[in-house]
Nucleic acid binder design. Sequence first.
DNA 1: CATGAATGAGTATTCATTCAT
DNA 2: TATGAATGAATACTCATTCAT
Lengths: 228, 228, 228, 228
Amino acid sequence: MSTARKPGRPIDLDLVERRRAAILDAAAKLFAEKGFAHADTQVLADVVQVSKGTVFRYFPTKRELFEASIERSLDRLRQTVDAAAEAVADPLEKLLAAMTGYLRFFDENPEVVELLILERAEFKDRKSSYFDHKEKCSETDDGWLLLLAGLIADGRFRNIPTERIKNVLGDLLYGTMFSNHMSGRTRALESQARDLFDIVFHGLLTDAERSRGGIARYLPQDAAGKSE
Amino acid sequence: MSTARKPGRPIDLDLVERRRAAILDAAAKLFAEKGFAHADTQVLADVVQVSKGTVFRYFPTKRELFEASIERSLDRLRQTVDAAAEAVADPLEKLLAAMTGYLRFFDENPEVVELLILERAEFKDRKSSYFDHKEKCSETDDGWLLLLAGLIADGRFRNIPTERIKNVLGDLLYGTMFSNHMSGRTRALESQARDLFDIVFHGLLTDAERSRGGIARYLPQDAAGKSE
Amino acid sequence: MSTARKPGRPIDLDLVERRRAAILDAAAKLFAEKGFAHADTQVLADVVQVSKGTVFRYFPTKRELFEASIERSLDRLRQTVDAAAEAVADPLEKLLAAMTGYLRFFDENPEVVELLILERAEFKDRKSSYFDHKEKCSETDDGWLLLLAGLIADGRFRNIPTERIKNVLGDLLYGTMFSNHMSGRTRALESQARDLFDIVFHGLLTDAERSRGGIARYLPQDAAGKSE
Amino acid sequence: MSTARKPGRPIDLDLVERRRAAILDAAAKLFAEKGFAHADTQVLADVVQVSKGTVFRYFPTKRELFEASIERSLDRLRQTVDAAAEAVADPLEKLLAAMTGYLRFFDENPEVVELLILERAEFKDRKSSYFDHKEKCSETDDGWLLLLAGLIADGRFRNIPTERIKNVLGDLLYGTMFSNHMSGRTRALESQARDLFDIVFHGLLTDAERSRGGIARYLPQDAAGKSE
DNA sequence: CATGAATGAGTATTCATTCAT
DNA sequence: TATGAATGAATACTCATTCAT
């Protein structure tokens, strides 16, 4: 186990990792294209140029293969979004960059959307990997909540509970992403993002309407939201 | 020989309609619970208390059965939303009521969300019934666009292209609905809706930040949103 | 039961017969086209413009319907052949006419060949209607044997057992008919018949070869045929 | 790494061939007995003592299994006939041997007749394998036509177009074979063959009748056969 | 008598998973 | 460790036949 090489055929530990990745990538594409049930492991094996037996050595069941490929995709999503956010310094700009990065990731990796759909379609028992992943990240890293809190403290965001902001933004992005994918929307991503951000950041109401009391007046119970 | 009555057993048209509905309702629940492939037509027949043959008399293929059950669900969604909107007169209130109605429908009929997911998972070739339905309704009835235009004309909504508003609100609701369903969120629907509306109608930014120029300053190109 | 008409709606006894015939004719075509299993009684009912129930009133099972339609076809075959034979007086000419009539019948009614094939394919237990029919006719009417005997007595045919002649001619026609149908042969029927008759009536051998002893010399055992 | 030997379980090519043959033979018998539709693949698998899955590994569809089993039978027919013909030297004797071999093959392998019938009954779209096979063999090998031409040149056969002779003999055998099978004829094959050959080689007519002009006088048009 | 809605038996095919080599 | 042959569970769909009206 040391760095000292043993005689004979070297054990290519790296091969294992490369092969695992190759299998997962091919699996993601195959699942996305064919659906879970119709994705034939034989086809997968052919694509990766290993035998079916080998695929099952790496992933003992088709389901585990599927879960692993979704996990890998979500890791890449997180990395992409984080990278986009880290490229800028200003908190608000960071938020915008992250949101755009999120939409762009799914735009460029449409098979990941399919995986999310398939997971729910096939494994209703299991909690969605997407939300599971999201939750886990939140537990270990409340960076976005801090960022939102900072924006509020700086007087740039209205005083809305940060958790709530996070939820609404998350839902908006999630829905936009799905919507884009499933409806076949083809608008340029950047332009679409700007329109969306304009509305959610500035709100739909005019200043006049807001000063008149905003939507609170129309909501069934007046225990509505009290902000700012 | 006088009347148009043909010989033989008369047809009970009402029974046909009732049975069709019973099959579709049972099918929706079964599909939602088991997924498309694992929903056994024999089980369905047993539930509805008819023979398998009868099920296939009504719907010649499992797929057609599925599509019909989704169609029926979407019709019910539309009716629910329309009814909610028509209960109030003020345009803004109408909009809020419709949005709440939408979320409530899926909250009360969670199997419909499953159907939407299943449809995409199984029939990637077919355009999503949801968006198809949406599109068809838009073609024949641009009521919501008119309502939005009215709100803008009245100075209550900022001057944003109505189509864009509709898209963003649609995506927000779509995402929230999915999100609620898949993440198992359990918040009271009314409370959640109010929080969501607060953000999207009033915006996230403070008045101070808005008067400073809003988010336009942070967006990659300044062709951003021009409001009010 | 007399010719005296009773009051009220007349019972159209003829209708029964006409309908029976219509069903059988349509059935023959349908069976021939689709095969036994794939011939749908519903389709048959639609064609004849009666209900499925009515079809089953006339023929209690699909199989009986099939047998009846084959029986009807074979009756028509017999009539056709008999008519052709009766049109001429000379015995040899009669024979030739009958054989030509046989081939022409199947040429003009190809669906009958299909029925013969289907019967064997589906009902291996039952004796072939064709041979059954042939046998029955032979029992009641040995006209062809008499005719052959006459030809021999007249010194026109070689002295071969008439039963044997009948068998060989029967097999030759049966095979030619099947062969024509299944291989899609398109030669004009008359020309083909003449070629065939030439060989079977005159034989393949030259006079020289015959006078040398014919084929008897080449046959395994010399108990061969002793003719003339 | 030196030899071409791949890792993993080696392939037993011989087993594959033996198993293929076993499946085809069992299939031929099963089809012949039950008919195409009623031949259950599970039963076949049980007979061959493999799993149903294995049967489908060898033949992806029931139909392909059927076609392969018919093909195998026709290959065996050809071999049998060729072997019978090659056992003798004299052309005429060769012809007689081949014809007898043909009849004997079907006598000893009655299931092959059933396969031919089933093929037509089930797959009306496909050209009959029998005639297809026959055609293919004729294309590559006109041995029989040459043999007939030789017999004519030698003054043993009348001068009839060889193609025509081949057709008539083919039809006669085909019909005799079917006839034997379907009518349940039980005569000793050799005896039957001799009777048949006697007629077709020597003809039905007496010398006297032939010298009087043969059948040409009785045929509708006198463009009949001109022989010898 | 006629109708046609309802029944339910019968079967090819796919593909994850195992395991002998 | 890699291979790929073998396994067998699981399921939509058709259509003859029945029978209530």
